[in-house]
Write a protein that binds this DNA or RNA. Structure first.
Lengths: 353, 353
DNA sequence: CCGCGAAATTGGATCGATCCAATCCTAGGC
DNA sequence: GCCTAGGATTGGATCGATCCAATTTCGCGG
């Protein structure tokens, strides 16, 4: 209640002051702030009253120095600007908030040196653990170093190949395989995978899903093109993308940024989406439902992935020797008007490539 | 280089170990890590070599206990899920990263109790300062408490009325005034302001800009409607919004979320945007350029606001007594196809309301 | 070779909470 | 009335870096 400690008094009250004021020892006061069951009800109340009266503020730094835990976790993402990561972080934050853990956030900007720098800083701040969405070009040392340092680490959304750590992610492979199957079921044979130019597991898995479906049906999975992951790049690429020896009847995009850019680009060319050409995005961002015609997309649940990652980290912190766990959330195909049956076959009617 | 300290050795090397290994005193080693100019070149090199050899890790917690600075800042935003805030944070992060400051992030979720809780936590962690985007319902105590605690605080994007603290924001008022003027210049008289349902300075300022322009021309500024700030709510509201005694010829939206929702909703009703009705958004999100017809919007620069907020905080930390500063970035009107001349006057031709 | 000011270095005290082993109560059993 | 078990409490040592005042080293002119 009364937090009107003398303002000019200079020094913030310490646990020592609280103890004195409550007529107990430092050690007992310490037990109270830590909510230990060892103190009696009456003592606890007396100390808490003293804390309120003096306007006591817990000094986490001092505690950390003596104790092992710091009640701090680190989060490193490669691109804060991307709304997808923002939601991911919101999911983590929601979990950590309930545990009273402070989240130290860092943006690696897909820069491996920066990422390493942040990990160093997290160690300096004695973070209890870190969640990393490894930036492009990360290698095994990321995980190995953390192990050496005994720093609990979970990977989220992406993983470094051949590493073993807890992992929370999305079933990119199955999501993309499913989407491909849907297109195939609509009669599409020449499907182009419009990928981003970044090399990481999230891209690799998606591509693998696409290839798996295509090859399962004996179709050519070679239709892959790479773009920068921006609306403008995708929009501008619309015309060149259709200019292939075998013109694709469907475009399967790495994510909705690419898909929405192409959406506009294709409309600019006078094409009818869902009729002349089918278009599928990935992530199912809110705007996918707003554009006309609506963009078919594969819904992912980044918030949930964030929650999973946070829970995995909590578990790892409490049980450093527990078995490795991977939590993969499934995707959901959301059909809208941008997809439709393949146009009547022209030059490729007989199923032979 | 060689960071292969004996893994099982248990204890991490301390400055003391480094000093011993380099043949200097603790105090000198401390000066080296702090990059003090007081040590000689040769000593510095010797100590740095020892640090590398032992795999020394700076203990920020211990330093914080003794020193006053903690090299940590707090950031509190009301809604991490909103991409707008994600970009804002990215801007702050970019500045703090260059200063080697750790960012503790918190999401208040527009919940005043949570916001207060975070501020408490930031004090416990002895943050050097905080940036707050005050959640709805914040009052002067936010700023007054921070002052009492001698905690440097800057407000970003929103401010609590009648408070004096550093502030980094956007010129919402002028942006909205300008947009209103543009619509008036196109002949619009019945303009409806489609607002969000949140009460904070960012809303108030926008509304003020709208009213200022309308009243300057002697038009009725009473056309204001409130919606939940989601695509779906806006989309669903399209039909009821036009159902007013005097049907508006132009809609001026609180932000692009509302505008994009209405964009789709109006198209669903068979209206031609830019002809039958004009639509203006706010923020100029990437998707505004992608929808058809393109959405006219007022561009803001959240990244820059984030940078500004971070710089203000740095300045305040270094000079706690400096004069209050407010940095407002201007907006830019981006005209696209969703706006056009007012349709020929039907029932309101004579300029009288 | 001395002296002197500036530069470089140092030991001890300190920040504030936690750990640990030891001590103090206090009821309840005999 | 004595003893004991176990719950409650406590003082001292400690974590690792920084501050501060004091001391040593160095360079160089006289």
């Amino acid at each position: 209640m009364a937090d009107d400690q003398r303002p000019g008094r200079g020094r913030r009250p310490t646990l020592m002051d609280v103890a004195e004021h409550a007529g107990v020892s430092r050690a007992t006061a310490s037990l109270v702030v830590r909510k230990s069951p060892l103190v009696s009800q009456t003592t606890r109340q007396r100390v808490e009253a003293a804390m309120a009266e003096l306007g006591y503020v817990y000094n986490a730094g001092a505690a950390r120095l003596r104790a092992s835990r710091s009640r701090t976790v680190g989060v490193v993402v490669p691109n804060l600007t991307n709304p997808f990561f923002a939601v991911l972080i919101a999911g983590m934050e929601a979990v950590f908030e309930t545990e009273d853990l402070a989240v130290i956030l860092a943006n690696s900007n897909e820069d491996i040196a920066k990422q390493a720098g942040f990990l160093k800083r997290m160690r300096e701040h004695a973070a209890d653990g870190v969640i990393v969405c490894p930036c492009e070009g990360s290698d095994r040392r990321l995980v190995e170093d953390a192990a050496k340092w005994e720093l609990p680490l979970v990977q989220a959304l992406r993983y470094v190949p051949e590493t073993t750590s807890d992992y929370a992610g999305i079933d990119y492979r199955e999501g993309m395989r499913d989407a491909t199957e849907r297109l195939i079921a609509l009669g599409h044979r020449d499907i182009l995978f419009v990928s981003g130019n970044r090399r990481h597991s999230a891209r690799f898995d998606r591509l693998a899903g696409f290839c798996a479906a295509m090859e399962a049906h004996g179709f050519d999975a070679g239709g892959v093109v790479e773009l920068r992951l921006t609306h403008t790049a995708a929009r501008a690429a619309a015309s060149t993308i259709l200019d292939r020896q075998k013109r694709p009847s469907a475009l399967l995009c790495f994510n909705d940024v690419v898909a929405l850019g192409l959406h506009r680009g294709l409309l600019d060319l006078g094409l009818r989406l869902g009729r002349d050409v089918s278009l599928v995005g990935f992530d199912d961002v809110a705007e996918a439902a707003l554009v006309l015609p609506g963009l078919t997309s594969v819904a992912t649940r980044p918030f949930e992935v964030g929650e999973n990652a946070a829970r995995l980290l909590l578990r790892r912190i409490h049980a450093p020797a527990a078995a490795i766990e991977r939590r993969i959330v499934p995707t959901r195909y959301v059909e809208r008007e941008s997809t439709g049956p393949a146009p009547a076959a022209l030059d490729h009617g007989l199923g032979l490539p």
